[in-house]
């Protein structure tokens, strides 16, 4: 279990936040850029009706490139949004990059960029956006950098979910919830809540997290209670617990029972 990588990534985000503030999306994007020795990084979020909208960039040049990608509908970020998997250009002056992104590639080279690496921010149907890293030197990311970038994209995902509901909690709680965010029950519960409330899966995930924070419960426990029909989360943060969350029939996080219903 490589929790070291997550710990390191969250540590870098915390350091970018100055160690005092609650880390924000901006801190995560800055930390990602720095730890990948990049020229900069940008975060674009999915628009309600599709398409991407630049939200954050580490500098004016990066913002320009982000806007250019989404205006042209070209570039690794656009491709990552479409495919749902990481997309990259390891050398923008190479012929294949020029063919793939005929307008974007030369524009990025003109601004001194040679490598672009784009990572989807999301989980399943909850695609929130794309994190894009720009480098001045050509060449691939090495294995550890790839994995770091994916963990950064996960961190950006949970921060973006919390950002949606204006939730602001301390780093330890965010990290706790991030570790379990990929568990099957959490995603089942998000799907169930989406159906119950006629909301998007992303909003459902954000609500599950907010509820976990506000009640001091683990995300996994909240998910298990939702799936067992013991917890009904209403809109605007109100909730109805059908049975006490501290009751004995809800499994403690870490126990062996899983997905019984």
């Amino acid at each position: 279990m490589d929790q070291l990588r997550s710990t390191r990534v969250w540590g870098a985000i915390n350091a970018a936040a100055g160690g005092v503030d609650v880390p924000s999306l901006r801190h995560a994007v800055i930390a990602c850029s720095e730890s990948l020795s990049a020229a900069g990084a940008g975060l674009a979020l999915t628009r309600p009706r599709g398409g991407l909208e630049p939200l954050l960039a580490t500098g004016a040049d990066i913002r320009e490139l982000e806007e250019l990608q989404f205006t042209l509908g070209q570039g690794p970020g656009v491709d990552a949004k479409t495919s749902g998997v990481p997309e990259s250009a390891t050398d923008l002056v190479a012929a294949d990059a020029g063919r793939r992104w005929s307008a974007f590639a030369p524009a990025a080279v003109e601004r001194g960029m040679r490598g672009v690496f784009a990572f989807p921010v999301g989980a399943g149907a909850a695609g929130l956006g794309v994190l894009t890293v720009y480098r001045q030197q050509p060449g691939p990311l090495h294995t550890g950098q790839w994995l770091d970038a994916l963990v950064f994209a996960d961190a950006v995902f949970v921060l973006a979910l919390d950002h949606r509901l204006g939730v602001s909690v301390d780093l330890h709680e965010v990290i706790d919830a991030a570790f379990t965010a990929r568990r099957a029950e959490v995603h089942q519960a998000a799907g169930r809540l989406a159906a119950q409330q006629s909301i998007s899966v992303a909003d459902a995930l954000a609500r599950l997290r907010a509820h976990a924070y506000s009640t001091g419960t683990t995300l996994h426990r909240v998910a298990v209670a939702v799936m067992a029909g013991q917890l009904w989360l209403e809109s605007d943060d109100g909730y109805v617990a059908l049975s006490d969350l501290d009751g004995t029939d809800v499994e403690q996080d870490g126990n062996e029972q899983e997905e019984e219903e």
């Binding site: 399943g124 149907a125 099957a184 995603h187 089942q188 998000a190 799907g191 169930r192 159906a195 219903e261």
Partner: peptide, 11 residues
């Protein structure tokens, strides 16, 4: 993950 979300939705 997408399949898990859909399963939850259908429950």
């Amino acid at each position: 993950i997408l399949i898990e979300q859909a399963k939850g939705y259908l429950t």
